[in-house]
């Protein structure tokens, strides 16, 4: 019986895959198509590192991409507790470098214990949030 189910599933998958394209330029799907915002990060939002003059174009592109992802993850995972309300406006506070101690953040603060697990924030995402908080323009509001 299990073998029949397996064969049926394989057959279904083969039929399903018959629509595969050899070269289909329309196969790319972006967030724009899904009507989500596909915003570009304005330069005034971040400060490049002091040695940015020596960065290659690829490094700059990665810098901006990580920054952009860091904003989204911060807003999804962190903003609810960390943003400060100043005169009715939500402000992302400035974190000091010791406060942005990567892995250590997972365990140094009791409130992070259940929220910053590896099953809620990957190591890569962690780096992107730290990257964002480190290089964002300072708001003047300290955490």
């Amino acid at each position: 019986m299990k073998t029949i189910i397996t064969i049926t599933l394989i057959a279904f998958a083969v039929v399903f895959s018959n629509c595969k394209a050899t070269k289909n330029t329309n196969s790319k799907v972006t967030q724009t198509e899904t009507s989500q915002a596909n915003t570009k990060v304005p330069e005034q939002l971040y400060e490049l590192p002091y040695d940015s003059a020596s960065m290659t174009d690829a490094q700059k592109k990665q810098f901006v991409s990580d920054f952009e992802k860091g904003i989204i993850i911060y807003n999804t995972v962190c903003a609810n507790c960390h943003n400060k309300l100043v005169n009715g406006v939500q402000i992302v506070p400035d974190f000091s470098l010791p406060q942005l101690m990567d892995y250590e953040m997972r365990i140094q603060y009791p409130s992070h214990e259940n929220k910053l697990t590896e099953t809620n924030l990957t190591a890569l995402e962690f780096d992107q949030v730290v990257h964002y908080l480190r290089y964002k323009k300072k708001s003047g509001v300290h955490f």
Binding site: K20, N24, K28, I72, T76, Q128
Partner: peptide, 22 residues
Amino acid sequence: QKVLSCNEYKTAFTELLKQTPT
């Protein structure tokens, strides 16, 4: 490219893209 050339996959993953805003 092959997976997304299939409408069923494309539709389903397009819907799931909303779950990964980054």
